[in-house]
């Protein structure tokens, strides 16, 4: 079986993004539970931040493909 160490890097990027998006989602739900009337603002900012975190993981995946 052949492989590349790039696969480990992609896995690590996925773990990092998973922790990040998980934290964002969890905190957003806590915030919504505390202040349900602010759900609109919280949701928009949650998605925005999650997208930014995801962006880092995507760059890592792209680099993984490029250096392969």
């Amino acid at each position: 079986m052949t492989g590349s160490i790039v696969a480990i890097g992609m896995g690590l990027a996925a773990i990092g993004a998973g922790i990040g998006v998980g934290t964002i989602g969890g905190k957003a739900l806590e915030a919504i539970a505390r202040q349900p009337e602010a759900i609109g603002d919280i949701r928009a900012n949650m998605i925005l931040t999650a997208a930014l975190v995801e962006g880092v993981a995507l760059i890592a995946v792209l680099m993984a493909f490029l250096v392969k």
Binding site: A51, L52, E54, G55, L58, I59, V61, L62
Partner: peptide, 13 residues
């Protein structure tokens, strides 16, 4: 430049 790159990749991926 990173902003449009992440926009590209997010949707694509």
């Amino acid at each position: 430049f990173i902003k449009p790159v992440t926009l590209t990749l997010r949707l694509f991926a």
